[in-house]
Measured scan of single mutants.
Amino acid sequence: TCNCGQEAVLLTVRKEGPNRGRQFFKCNGGSCNFFLWADS
């Protein structure tokens, strides 16, 4: 659950770079700036 109470979504980094393939949680509604690496 993110900061605004919505269910956070699990996404994967697709951009080229050191974090490519890494998963993270983000706010589903985009109404808050919630971000969390899945492996932390």
Rank of each mutant, 00 (worst) to 15 (best):
G30E: 11
C4G: 00
V13S: 08
L10G: 04
G21L: 04
E7R: 10
G30P: 06
L10R: 11
N28W: 14
G5L: 02
R22S: 03
C27G: 00
R22A: 05
L10V: 06
Q6G: 10
Q23W: 03
A38G: 07
R22T: 05
E7G: 09
K15M: 12
L36K: 15
C4R: 00
R14N: 10
E16N: 12
F35A: 03
K15T: 14
T12S: 04
G17W: 02
E16G: 07
C32P: 00
D39L: 00
L11R: 14
N33G: 12
G29D: 13
N3D: 13
A8P: 15
P18M: 06
D39Q: 02
E16W: 10
F25V: 04
A8F: 00
F35G: 03
N33W: 03
C27P: 02
D39G: 08
T1Q: 08
K15N: 14
K26A: 13
R14E: 13
A8S: 06
S31M: 11
Q23H: 14
F35L: 04
N33L: 00
N33S: 12
S31H: 15
R14G: 11
G5H: 05
R22G: 03
R14S: 11
L36S: 15
R14Y: 12
G5A: 05
G21S: 04
N19L: 09
G29P: 03
N33V: 01
G5Q: 08
E16P: 09
S31E: 15
A8W: 06
G21R: 02
F35R: 05
N19T: 11
E16Y: 05
F35V: 06
K26M: 08
L10T: 12
L36F: 14
N28S: 11
F35Q: 08
L11G: 14
V9L: 15
K15F: 11
F25R: 05
G5C: 04
K15L: 06
R20P: 08
A8R: 03
C2F: 01
W37G: 04
N19G: 03
R20H: 15
R14C: 10
R20Y: 13
L10A: 07
R22W: 02
N19A: 04
K15A: 07
K15V: 03
R22N: 04
K26G: 13
P18R: 08
C27H: 01
K15Y: 07
G17R: 02
L10C: 15
R14A: 13
F34H: 05
P18L: 06
P18A: 12
C2G: 02
R14P: 07
V9C: 09
C27M: 01
V9P: 08
G17Q: 02
N19M: 14
C27R: 00
E7P: 12
C4L: 00
T1S: 10
C32S: 06
A8L: 08
Q23R: 10
T12C: 05
G5E: 13
Q6A: 15
W37T: 04
E16A: 10
T12K: 06
W37V: 09
T1M: 15
T12G: 01
G21N: 09
Q23G: 09
F35T: 03
K15D: 14
G17L: 02
R20C: 03
G30A: 05
F35K: 13
S31I: 09
K26V: 07
R22P: 02
K26L: 07
S31R: 14
T12V: 04
G5R: 04
R14L: 11
F34R: 05
C27T: 00
D39M: 00
G21A: 06
N19H: 15
G30V: 03
G29R: 11
N3S: 13
E7S: 08
G17I: 08
T12Q: 08
N28I: 15
A8M: 10
C27V: 00
K15E: 15
